[in-house]
Every structure is written in C-alpha cells, then in structure tokens.
Design a protein around this nucleic acid. Sequence first.
DNA 1: CGCATAATTGAGTGCATTCAAGATCTGTGG
DNA 2: CCACAGATCTTGAATGCACTCAATTATGCG
Lengths: 238, 238
Amino acid sequence: MRCAECPIRYRAVCAHCESDELTLLEGMKFYRSFEPGQAIVWEGDRMDFVASVVIGVATLTQTLDDGRTQMVGLLLPSDFLGRPGRERVAYNATATTKVVLCCFRRKPFDEMMRRTPHIAHRLLEMTLDELDAAREWMLLLGRKTAREKIASFIAIIARREASLNKRHPGGRMEVELPLTREAMADYLGLTLETVSRQVSALKKDGVIELSGKRGVILPDYARLVEESGDDSDGGWLS
Amino acid sequence: MRCAECPIRYRAVCAHCESDELTLLEGMKFYRSFEPGQAIVWEGDRMDFVASVVIGVATLTQTLDDGRTQMVGLLLPSDFLGRPGRERVAYNATATTKVVLCCFRRKPFDEMMRRTPHIAHRLLEMTLDELDAAREWMLLLGRKTAREKIASFIAIIARREASLNKRHPGGRMEVELPLTREAMADYLGLTLETVSRQVSALKKDGVIELSGKRGVILPDYARLVEESGDDSDGGWLS
DNA sequence: CGCATAATTGAGTGCATTCAAGATCTGTGG
DNA sequence: CCACAGATCTTGAATGCACTCAATTATGCG
C-alpha cells in the first residue's frame, strides 16, 4: 500500500509530512498483521520497531503479580505504538480484532525524528492528546460509579466512531463495541459480572438497546452522556 | 535569578538548551509565586503562559458536577505546567505548598518551540514520562486495594525524594508527605477517612512510623514496596 | 446442529464509604 | 509562655456498592 492512499494518512504520526519526507518513510516502513487475541509485544520485551495502527483495535495492559489486570491504553486506527528512544516495552500490547500495523524500525525512525521536525511535532501533539485522555480515564477510574463507567465508555466509543466519519455525536446512533465484557472490565477497573449487570441495567432503563453481542443502539446520545456523570462534553477543547 | 544557577536547570524543559537558547529564554521568562492552597489556574480559563515548577508542589485536579474530585497530576520541581498550542486550561491547578513558577508567555514560547528542536524534544520526553506515570497511576486507581494504594503513594514519594538527592531508594528512609489526607484521598481515589485508617494500619503493622502529621519514617523501603502490590520496581526502565 | 466461548443472572460477602464524634496539631493573641 | 480556636486527622458504627462464587443462558462458528 502506498502512503498517499493510506486511510490514516492525515491522522497518524506522519500526518504533517511533506512528499519528500513521505518518500523516506515509504522506504523504511513494513506491515505486520495480527489475529484477534494475539499478543503484539510483551512487557519487558525488546521491541525493535514503532508503529501506527492502520486497521483494527489493540490494547495496552498492565498486570499485578497476582493477575489483576488494568488496561492503560486503547489503540484505534492512527494511534501510535511504542516509545521512541526506549528499547524495552513497558506494557503488554494485544490485538482485540484483526490488526494491521505500519511499522518502522526504531533506529531509522529515531534518526528521522531528529531530522524532521514535522514528525517530532506531530508525535508531541499525539502524546499530549493521549495524556489528556489518560487523565479523563483517571477521573473515571477513581471517582465514577459502575453505571457511570459503562455509560462513559459507550459514549467514548460513540464519539470516536463519529469522529472517524467526520461527524458530531448526537441523536440516534449505532455503535459496535470493540471489546469483550472482560476487556471492558479491564478498561473500567471492574469485574466482567459488574459490566454485564450495568449494561443490562442501562438497557432496562431505555438508555441503550442491544443488537447481538457487541452492537449497541443509542436512542439518544445526550441521555447517555447524562448517565456518564460529566455533562460538559469537553467540547470547548479545540 | 539567572538560569545558570537555577536548581532545576538540568531537569526542566530547558534541560538540553545551549547557552544562546538559554539567553533567549532568560529574556522572556518571569517568576510568579503562590501560597499554599492558592489556585494557580481554573479549568476553562484562558492561560496566557506555560511554566516550570521551580519550588514547591502543585496539583492538577478534575471535578464532576456533584463535587467528586480526582487528582490527575502531581507537579514537583522541574515539572511542566500548561499545554503549548492550547489556550484553554483543561484542569484546575492548585499550589499545595509555597510554589514558585518560572513562566513563559505562550506565544513567544510556542514560537521558540518551532525553532529550537531542543525544547520540543525535551518536552516530548517529559510528556512521555508523564504518560508512563499516568498509566501506572491508572493501574493503582483501577486495581489496587486501599492499603496497596497508600503503600504505593508513600513509595512514589520516597522514590522521588531519593531521585532529587541523586540516590537510590532503599533501607531506612525518612520522607515528608507533601499532601494533606484529603489531597492524598483525591490522588488515590479514596475518602480521607479510608486514607487515615490505612495509614494507621500500616503504622500498626510496623511498615511505617509517623513523626508529626506529615513526616513518615520507613524502617525498610523494601517492605513498603511489598505492601504496594507491585514488587518489580520498574527499575529496568532507564 | 452441536460445541466452545461469551454473556447473563443470582445469592451472599466484604471492603470502602457515609455519617458522626472525638483527638491532635498549628498558629495566634493575650 | 500558655490558652484557645480552627483546621486537620483519627476512630467508631452502620450502610451499600461492587465483588466472589456459582449456575444458567445466549451467541456464533465449524
């Protein structure tokens, strides 16, 4: 696949690149695919590449000795995987759907980062966005009820799906949850049983409808946001 | 104060700057002081500067409509406050001790970032470190027990204090908690009563000793880390 | 259609919370 | 220097939300 026709061309780390920079990247990139459930890298491994998610959904998770697991990152198309300048991986990365990565070997990429400010600048921008997302996530983990956590999660997914289609969330929407109940539990700091119960409760109260295992229909997006605890949508952020 | 004799010269956003770049920064910087408990900026405000913490401790917090509060950032000397390229503040920032900030007006700073790769690169590095810290924090919020949260927090403070003195944590240590019980609760996603109870419990079990309200003595740092849930110290990151 | 995986639902428990009272610390003025 | 007042912290009792353990039901793939 050529960069020019890449679906994440204008959102990924290469978004601001000029055509000559793109040619350089084109020369050093390679694609890798992963099946649902497959590990991409393990915490502590040496990782000799960084990558953009082109297709699919991947998760970053951290684990305690006794197996308790917390998701700390949810990577959707255009998101970046890996830390420039660091050899060792800090988190487990797993594909939750079929995943295609656009990979760059670490050394040439680090070198390129030093030379072309476009990439470094874009990566800073993306990292700051991720930090904002992580902080919103911390509010969710630390202070929201189980019900609010579920509502927040569905709202986040709905917002992301709307944004991919360059639309604003609102009114009636249909979304597809990219995670199992267990993965949702790991995202939200809950057990899978509690996730299931609260999803059922939101359905019973008419906030959502279910279609199949992963499909969710939102009769009214605003109603869902009310249930999520934070009514201010964060819309004033540019 | 001149940059050359600044206590955070080699850790702050200006760490990698050459003498000519430093002269530029020297010309545009100004200092501001804040008293304990004083607000630095409020969520949604226009913020026309970015800053480095020179002295003291500040917190970033987010709030739900009904007043539930979660700390999402703990800023110690050399940490950076504000997001380049964004006008509006996303979090409340509050001084918890006497604080001195080294401020730069946003426009000249943004301009300088575009021109000098040293600053942009250092800021990326610092932001990635913050993201790592935020993710460790998420594991704490989502999956640790109250007792583990308290132990983790004290261990984090001990590690930071050791690092400021360029020492490795270990053995017997004395640390000073820079937060009230309430602020600790907001950090850990607990109530202040639970914080108090678990601090007492750790004391009763000989993991810590208390001296005054804020002073903590660790007879054995390793023992504290055991109580924190994650025995791997993360020491392999460099 | 049959099976394995994923999801739901139920019953009972426990940990952190809420509400409430008391103790300790800190700084200020007599 | 000491007494006092406000803030901070500690401790107690009771509640409730999410968890654990367990059984059942649904989904979707071969």
